[in-house]
């Protein structure tokens, strides 16, 4: 309390009218600066219209042969594709299943129709001869075809069709 009284006395002792009448005191300049800055940011500063980051470019639909599909197995940072009855699906989002080390890894980059139809994920379900004709699945029964249809429907719902699979030598046919 002593201190307060002492300061009050000090200030009271100052001559009255000691404050400057000028506009350009440091306090006024500071406040004026603040005022002008706020005016500028609130009223005058133009802001460009809102923008979103650019979209991912669309994947170009293309024609694969068993050989050109092969690299799309998820290794070396490649996306994971697999083919079902001539349609190539981008299953990169299901990388845990279809990518390297996943339970369905054998299908990555290959024609998976027969394996899905038979419910088997073994190597021998894949077509060995990459340059030969595509698997026609002609020897499969009704149950297997139904299972395959189920898989295909699920794929079409979940994944994008990014291309079609044609045997080597027929790529030009539409």
């Amino acid at each position: 309390m002593d201190y307060v009284e002492q300061r009050m006395a000090q200030e009271a002792a100052k001559p009255a009218g000691g404050a400057s009448d000028s506009l350009f005191t440091p306090l006024n300049l500071a406040l004026l600066g603040l005022f002008l800055y706020t005016t500028y940011t609130l009223l005058l500063k133009p802001s460009p219209p809102a923008a979103l980051p650019k979209e991912e470019p669309a994947i170009v639909f293309r024609t694969f042969t068993p050989r050109t599909l092969l690299p799309y197995n998820g290794e070396n940072n490649m996306p994971v594709y697999l083919a079902v009855r001539g349609r190539v699906f981008d299953v990169t989002r299901g990388r845990n299943f279809y990518g390297p080390g996943g339970p369905y890894a054998n299908f990555a980059g290959r024609d998976a129709s027969r394996g899905l139809a038979c419910g088997s994920f073994d190597e021998e379900m894949l077509t060995k001869d990459l340059d030969g004709p595509l698997d026609t699945l002609a020897d499969l029964g009704r149950d297997e075809m139904e299972a395959l249809q189920g898989w295909e429907d699920r794929f079409s719902e979940k994944y994008l069709v990014v291309g079609k699979l044609l045997p080597v030598g027929e790529e030009d046919k539409a």
């Binding site: 200030e11 404050a19 400057s20 005191t25 440091p26 306090l27 406040l31 005022f35």
Partner: peptide, 18 residues
């Protein structure tokens, strides 16, 4: 105290505007 001791009519004006 020194700074606000500079308060004068212009200061009031600026603050009012603000």
């Amino acid at each position: 105290t020194g700074l606000f001791g500079q308060w004068n009519v212009y200061t009031s004006l600026i603050v009012t505007l603000f």
